[in-house]
Design a binder for these strands. Structure first.
Lengths: 385, 385
DNA sequence: CTTTTGTATGAAACGCTTTACATAAAGTAT
DNA sequence: ATACTTTATGTAAAGCGTTTCATACAAAAG
């Protein structure tokens, strides 16, 4: 559609001037008036000319089916009374016109978007990736679209994402998250859409936001006991979380188990890693170079366990004879290592699935009965132990 | 807001009956009338009562700043004339009310959504994941939100995703894709949003959809020549794509290079894998068990190369003395293997970045000068060659 | 047959912005 | 001063569904 603005631009005057010409209000120099009239002709301007949208709207369908838009809407949404006869006619029209409802218009009216956000710490990480897949699947089944945010611990960007969700009027958010984190907690508190967390270690927080997780404490406790049962005594722990403040449940459970089993936690046997392969490598290196060789190493995730394995192999330790290794997460490559890494499997799919279901209930305004949903883990003993 | 529907439900009658009572149209039994009137009181029904939305709208801002909504809009969108004074007042009001524009309303009016789709074959794959990160970053800078679809080669779901994009009136789509695929091509042809493809092997297609990629043919050609220069002669190839119809550029280049170098492609020395570790393992196993031991193996991706490495080690071949290995993609773990895997690096970030930039131009209605954008690869010779 | 009730459908309002056009006020040449 | 122009702002429509309320008609009850 050609607007006054277009004319103004073409004639290099303000819209006001064009408007005056069109409405014969005078006060326009003859020269300009001429140019403007010329442009109006050239560009083909008509006042209030209706443009025809490219895509058919509900009105078009209504017209074609000879019913009101209300009836079309009722057919589409499938509640309310519509006679079979009319229904069919409408459906036909929809098909022949190739009509697809405009989601924006719908959302605007309904104040509901069928859009949910998913925050994921690292999209390349197997654990989160698998959980995401489940979320995708179940969301799809429930007609929810996903706005995925690959977090990577950038708080500023996190805040930005919260804003996006609010602006888009998303229905809710699933926050996959590992570590305890002060700033995150702040942001979350001020966020007022339905929210579900996954994998959050709730150790230090008094949040009441629903969370899905395995029982990390019990899991780590069991692992240490299992190592004990397999006659390992000098057990080291490579943590992902801090060693002092904000210890993870996994670390706490390790300490408790060691104490309960009357095992000494040797100096330097608890090291901090960064959840990646190299930090696991370095952690075990520090232990062995500065202290002594553990009989077993329990790492807070598989990457670090594999890094430790690499180091052990580099200094020619036999696994599991000289040193046993166990990780957590059961990532794909854990069973591809030589020897195969022992680890702990988590029900990723179940967790992801449940998270969507719970969020859906929250969105519907229902209350949840719990704020922590725990799932069963499974310890997989493979060659490395 | 209490509606007639609510009353009808509460009184267990149809809305029609309630309407009659409200408007004194008679024809309602005394008993029902009584119940209905009762409910009306109980629930507090007022005809046409306006509901107050929870979130402030542009009207509220306008009112607070004592200007029209048009002016507020102008301030927000920052084009057009607004006096400094007014601008400030509006900005203040926005802040104090905590106003965020309703994206749906805006999109509805603007017919533009700032939302683009991204199709990614496998979110856990390093190659695609890294490209995605770049896309995310650049998209964010340009104020685009992403609807990500983790494809996993499910055509039915792909079609569904296309529908979602159309319903949401997305502005465009970036399709990260590897293999040639008939069905995909069909779907793409009928898709009429701005579209950019990444990593598509354009070998067999006559599509003119803009595509970003490295020069796979040249790359593979170079790799074979490099192996030749390093005195490898019996070179096997593990392909990801089919071996007969729809050969990939990589495979074709391998064949051409071998021919050009006057090297024989020995029987069974071209094997098909599935881009994963195990298929690489099996492929090399087939070669060695059924035919002979190659001097070098060129795999179409790192996973398969690593699988081949695993097999070579299992049968105690020394790398690179007995057998050399090279992959493609430079995935993270390629440099974590022992020995470190030689591979080919691709400018993932650049590609991802460019894809968004090009899409943006397409969205603005500009034409692109090319339909294939090629990027520089880099061959990384590490310990395995 | 009359009264009551439900079924099926339409008209119009609504949700929240942006935009097209109009116009008062303020400059700027002449 | 006068004759133009631009600046700055408002009014109302438009964008496209959904929803509310009203109502014609059919069916059931009395």
């Amino acid at each position: 559609m050609v607007t006054i603005k277009d004319i103004a631009e073409a004639a290099e005057v303000s819209t006001a001037t064009v408007s005056r010409v069109i409405n014969n209000k005078g006060n326009v120099s003859a020269a300009k008036e001429k140019i403007i009239k010329q442009k109006i002709k050239e560009l083909g301007y008509y006042k209030n000319k209706k443009k025809k949208s490219s895509q058919p709207g509900i009105k078009d369908v209504a017209q074609a089916a000879e019913v009101s838009t209300a009836t079309v809407s009722r057919v589409i949404n499938g509640d309310a009374y519509v006679s079979e006869e009319v229904k069919e006619k409408v459906l036909d029209s929809i098909k022949s016109l190739g009509y697809t409802p405009n989601v924006n218009a719908r959302n605007l009216r309904k104040k509901q978007t069928n859009l949910i956000g998913v925050i994921i710490p690292d999209i390349l990480n197997t654990v989160f990736g698998r959980t995401l897949r489940a979320i995708e699947k179940i969301a799809d089944q429930n007609n929810l679209d996903l706005l995925i945010f690959n977090y990577a611990s950038k708080y500023s960007r996190l805040e930005n994402f919260f804003n996006i969700l609010e602006r888009r009027r998303a229905d809710g958010l699933i926050f996959i998250s590992g570590e305890y984190n002060k700033k995150e907690e702040e942001l979350i508190k001020n966020f007022d859409l339905p929210l579900i967390q996954i994998f959050r270690d709730r150790n230090h927080e008094n949040l009441t936001i629903p969370n899905l997780n395995i029982n990390n404490y019990q899991m780590a406790y069991e692992v240490v006991n299992l190592l004990y049962k397999n006659n390992y005594r000098k057990i080291a722990f490579i943590s992902g979380s801090p060693l002092e403040e904000h210890k993870s449940s996994r670390l706490l459970a390790y300490e408790k188990a060691m104490t309960d089993l009357d095992l000494e936690i040797k100096e330097g046997f608890v090291q901090k890693g960064e959840y990646d392969l190299d930090s696991g490598y370095q952690a075990l290196k520090r232990i062995i170079e500065n202290y002594s060789v553990p009989e077993a190493v329990f790492a807070a995730n598989d990457e670090m366990a594999l890094g430790a394995m690499r180091y052990a192999q580099d200094i020619n330790l036999k696994i599991p004879e000289d040193i046993a290794l166990i990780g957590i997460d059961n990532i794909d490559i854990s069973k591809d290592s030589v020897p195969e890494l022992s680890t702990v499997d988590q029900p990723y799919f179940e967790i992801g699935k449940k998270s969507v279901e719970l969020l859906l209930r929250l969105i519907k305004g229902q209350k949840l009965e719990k704020d922590e949903y725990l799932f069963e883990h499974q310890i997989l003993l493979r060659e490395s132990v």
